[in-house]
């Protein structure tokens, strides 16, 4: 599957290019005799370029090295996905705190004490810079809304 990625990616771009070109011509309009270039004019031209170059990439993909996509790299994606989902439940800063503690303890094998202190300091710095200094209001989540109203 990983080996196929070098072929799948240009194929996806060709499909995206076709979708943008079709929408450009048929939905947003390419050219109007009175008004000149319409909303679909530019995206259609770019789509044609994208399709053409993606076809070249596809034909040359055989010579490319196979990508690695190590499984451990997925952990970062899963961690951010977890923060994203947990934010709706417990709010952003508690989610980040939990994620940092679990990450440091379980993946990097730091001690509980170090993990908790490091996560706490990081979250406090974020809160100070973004929450207080830049005055951005971060989501409290369902739990936070229940507690703080």
């Amino acid at each position: 599957m990983r080996r196929l990625a070098k072929y799948v990616f240009p194929v996806c771009l060709i499909i995206i290019g076709i979708v943008f070109a079709v929408l450009g011509v048929f939905e947003f309009g390419f050219w109007d005799e009175a008004k000149g270039p319409m909303g679909g004019f530019y995206p259609t031209l770019v789509s044609i370029l994208l399709i053409a170059m993606s076809i070249v990439c596809l034909t040359l993909a055989r010579d490319d090295k196979d990508p690695k996509f190590p499984v451990q790299n997925l952990l970062v994606i899963l961690a951010v996905l977890a923060i994203f989902c947990c934010t709706f439940l417990i709010g952003m800063f508690p989610s980040i705190f939990l994620c940092l503690v679990i990450w440091l303890r379980k993946i990097e094998k730091y001690s509980w004490r170090f993990s908790v202190i490091f996560a706490l300091v990081t979250v406090l710095v974020f809160y100070g810079v973004f929450g207080k200094w830049l005055a951005i209001s971060f989501p409290n989540g369902l739990l936070g809304d229940l507690i703080f109203g």
Partner: peptide
């Protein structure tokens, strides 16, 4: 140590 910190900066910064 840099990975989890930068990862969370990405989340907070984008929000």
């Amino acid at each position: 140590l840099m990975i989890p910190v930068i990862m969370t900066i990405c989340v907070v910064g984008s929000y």
